[in-house]
Design a protein around this nucleic acid. Structure first.
Length: 857
DNA sequence: CACTAGGGTGGACAT
DNA sequence: CACCCTAGTG
């Protein structure tokens, strides 16, 4: 028992002793790790070691509980203990076990800690790092995304809200489909009410916690015709989801919040359970997510949020900066800690980024600083067109590679997925191994969605949407008319579509198709039987066969259908991945949950040596030594929609800030004088963001500013520029599902569009890449450069020996005719040839790709 | 009534 | 490029 003064001294010493364990952190980081009680706002700038802090904070909670942040002193503490601890703080010497015993005050059990992130990948990373630091106990920490945490809560208790606990999750495409169907059924013009925008209204209504009828009432009161119509669509949308036992992404959180608000026992259960609640990327939360988090934290109010207002880039999704800007108001007396030292980037990069973001109003205001050196200036390359731009990026990567960098040290960031195509082609041409993250996801492919739809209907027969997707796919002679009549009956009888077609003979209207419908339900019944008997993977193989899906694809036997079949089979890999990772009892429902919430980014495997291409949005939270930000033009970035809209513009600027601060050592920005996108050519000025970078940090380069070097009018583009279509979100192939949270699982299977087999390669790296990990689980979207096949032909032996072309050689090219080699310039494992053709003028070609079409005379 | 082929059109960012 | 709608045939 100590007196008051001694108690104070004890607390100080206890904190000091604990702090010793975190002495490798800077003072602010330490403070963040040691502040455990009450609401805490952690403003963490880009690259300020935020994740490290989070991990140490959790470690502290589990080891010392409230020890570092409490004025409470256990009764059994003696003066001798105090002396010991003060001595320990001074010297770090002494009985470690005694120190730990003295410092610990209610250590937190792992399952009382809830840490929420935005992506599965971030959650997985958090778990991995915690497991490394804390051992297996870390597995019991609830580290997950908003959505998976909610699904977990809902599966337990959603029946209280009237939903079946086997509910289905609809993705954005599914939601869109439902809205389109509604517009059609209600005879509403989809030009006046674009489905996407309607979904936006619905989403915002849910974010404001408004149920359909309430929203409708409000809209009617306002007298706004348009809004009233939208509200009616919302009501119908919700009705259909209800009928189908389906939840969309917003519902997952919306219903969880409702559940917690309406049922005291559920809320109290979780409020008692979670002693500590942490939210990462707080600037990206919307109102619902805020409500959810603050409700869950409502028991102990040990609510720690981490974020950076300058990195808020999901306003379009309902994220509100207000959440972070007003956290202090909502939690009176909350503590605020700022992390402003950047450990990631060089001075040039950091100061340029600061200069850009400084143009935004309405920020909390912070300046990152670094002890790092100046580094290289940023480079702006003004290209002639998108091909020139892509070629420039490829050339810089080859240069970097030849100077000893890894491919994976390079990242290419763009505003829209559609921009990836030209860059992709340039990588193919130059033999650069690359990987595209995002874009058309594996689970978005039609054939994969079809198979998932079968599984979904088996899991939940009320899922009308998925049912209509597969009922006549493969064709079974059940047409639109039959489905429509059956749907009318279902509505009339207030039963599900499946129930109607299952009893088709009872309805005279369906008499003609009854036999066909019975055939379908017999198939489904048979499959449902198999599902009980077989393990999931074997069942799936049966599914492919018995539905006739495989036969359908095989019979057509076109290239596309072969790839489709591959994709259908590839889903089996995902199932295996799930079976291996699913802890307790794997189930169809569990598998469907996991893939519904799975994103492409989650499969990004940093160990694979590939250049990474992705949108700036996807890049958040990642870092790379060399970063290319392409398409830095007015109208592209900032996008056309943002020009003239202050708020939108600020969001674009924050996006720019995020993109720039991904770079550790070298940052390139590129723009093109002319660009073809979606088949149209446009001419844009360089982005205003580039102009906001002070000249002392920026070096400007550009062919358009230099004398005409090559002579060729089209810049460097030796390749016919329309060879493979522009728009499009990437014709792409076989990504796979890496399986759950183990980001380190061996990922390998890399394939090309045309040929699913591993291709012969000219350099060791591609082979190494495709062979890594046995290709068992496969990586999301690894591609081998297509160039490998032509080069294989052109370079006998396939090794490093390049076909020999020298300055002065006369050559004949299949497309360009006869010409003379003007120069040969080595670049990475390739070389750039400058050739003066008799007919078409001077062209620059990459040796490896040109070799296949060219012979020496 | 089911199915296929052909033409027109409209496209961010993502859980 | 992927979608939706239309026209025409089995």
């Amino acid at each position: 028992m100590l007196n008051h003064d001694l108690e104070l001294r004890f607390c100080k010493a206890r904190r000091g002793a604990i702090a010793r364990e975190f002495s490798h952190l800077n003072p602010e980081q330490q403070k963040a790790a040691l502040t455990t009680e009450g609401p805490l706002l952690l403003l963490a700038g880009a690259g300020s070691g935020k994740t490290t802090v989070l991990i140490h904070r959790v470690a502290n909670l589990m080891k010392y509980g409230r020890g570092s942040d409490s004025t409470e002193v256990p009764e059994w503490v003696t003066e001798d203990d105090l002396t010991f601890l003060e001595e320990y703080v001074r010297t770090g010497a002494g009985d470690k076990a005694r120190q730990e015993r003295l410092c610990a005050l209610d250590p937190a059990a792992p399952w009382t800690i809830l840490a929420i992130t935005f992506t599965n990948k971030a959650a997985g990373e958090l778990k991995d790092r915690l497991a490394r630091m804390l051992g297996p106990a870390a597995n019991d920490i609830w580290a997950s995304t908003f959505h998976s945490a909610c699904v977990r809560i809902l599966r337990r208790d959603i029946e209280k809200l009237g939903f079946a606990s086997s509910f289905t999750i609809y993705d954005t495409d599914d939601s869109l489909r439902v809205v389109k169907d509604i517009l059609k059924d209600l005879g509403i013009d989809d030009k006046q009410f674009p489905p996407r925008s309607v979904l936006g209204y619905i989403s915002r209504a849910k974010d404001a916690m408004k149920l359909a009828d309430q929203y409708l009432a409000e809209c009617e009161r306002s007298g706004d015709f348009r809004l009233t119509k939208i509200a009616k669509i919302y009501a119908e949308y919700q009705r259909r989801l209800w009928e189908a036992s389906a939840l969309d992404f917003d519902d997952i959180i919306f219903h969880t919040v409702r559940l917690l608000q309406q049922f005291d026992e559920v809320r109290e259960f979780y409020q008692r359970k979670f002693r500590y609640v942490l939210i990462d990327e707080y600037q990206d939360t919307n109102n619902l997510q805020y409500l959810l988090a603050s409700t869950l934290a409502g028991g102990y109010e040990n609510f720690c949020v981490v974020g950076d207002d300058d990195q808020s880039i999901y306003r379009f999704r309902g994220a509100t900066i207000e959440n972070i800007l007003s956290f202090e108001k909502q939690y009176k007396g909350c503590r605020v800690i700022r992390l402003e030292e950047n450990y990631r980037s060089t001075k040039h990069i950091l100061e340029a980024s600061n200069a850009v973001i400084r143009n935004n109003q309405g920020r909390k205001g912070k300046e990152l600083w670094t002890k790092a050196g100046e580094g290289d200036k940023l480079t702006l390359y003004a290209a002639m067109n998108e091909n020139d731009e892509a070629q420039y990026v490829a050339a810089r990567i080859l240069e970097g590679y030849s100077q000893g960098r890894k491919w994976k040290d390079h990242a290419i960031l763009y505003r829209m997925n559609a921009q990836s195509n030209q860059i992709e082609n340039a990588c193919k041409r130059n033999g650069i191994p690359y990987r595209i993250i995002g874009g058309t996801r594996f689970f978005d492919r039609a054939e994969v969605k079809d198979m998932v739809a079968y599984l979904a209907v088996l899991n939940n027969p009320e899922d009308d949407l998925r049912l209509t997707r597969i009922i006549n796919n493969p064709p079974r002679g059940i047409g639109a008319k039959t489905i429509e009549t059956a749907q009318e009956i279902a509505r009339r009888e207030e039963s599900s579509l499946y129930a109607v077609i299952d009893n088709a003979r009872m309805y005279p209207e369906l008499e003609r198709s009854a036999a066909k419908l019975a055939g379908f339900t017999a198939l489904m019944g048979e499959l449902a039987g198999l599902l009980d008997e077989l393990p999931l993977d074997q069942f799936y193989e049966e599914l492919i066969l018995r539905t006739g899906y495989a036969t359908m694809l095989e019979s057509k036997n076109t290239v596309e259908d072969r790839t489709r079949l591959e994709n259908v089979r590839e889903l089996l890999t995902s199932i295996h991945g799930y079976l291996e990772n699913a802890g307790e009892e794997p189930s169809l429902a569990g598998f469907l949950d996991e893939i519904a919430l799975y994103t492409d980014l989650d499969s990004h495997d940093p160990d694979q040596d590939c250049v990474v291409m992705m949108t700036m949005h996807s890049a958040k939270g990642l870092e790379f030594p060399v970063v290319f930000v392409v398409g830095a033009e007015e109208g592209i970035f900032p996008g056309i929609r943002a020009i003239g809209e202050t708020e939108e513009m600020e969001e674009e600027r924050r996006l720019c800030y995020v993109a720039m601060t991904r770079a550790k050592e070298k940052l390139y920005l590129t723009c093109a004088n002319q660009r073809m996108l979606f088949g149209r050519t446009s001419s844009n000025r360089p982005s205003r963001f580039v102009e906001e970078i002070p000249p002392e940090h920026l070096e400007r380069l550009g062919r358009s500013c230099l004398p005409n070097l090559g002579g060729g009018e089209e810049g460097w583009s030796g390749m016919p520029s329309r060879s493979s279509g522009y728009g499009g979100y990437g014709s792409y192939q076989r990504p796979t599902y890496g399986g759950g949270r183990s980001a380190q699982a061996g990922q390998g299977g890399s394939r090309t569009d045309r040929d699913p087999r591993p291709q012969p390669s000219y350099g060791g790296f591609v082979r190494a890449m495709s062979g890594a990990g046995g290709g068992a689980t496969g990586s999301a979207r690894t591609r081998q450069p297509l160039a490998s096949s032509p080069v294989g032909a052109g370079a006998p032996g396939g090794g490093g020996s390049l076909p020999a072309f020298q300055k002065g050689d006369t050559v004949r090219h299949k497309a360009f005719g006869q010409g003379m080699v003007l120069s040969v310039q080595k670049m990475g494992g390739d070389a750039l040839l400058e050739i003066a053709f008799d007919q078409v003028g001077t062209k620059r070609l990459m040796l490896k790709s040109a070799a296949a079409h060219m012979e020496k005379l």
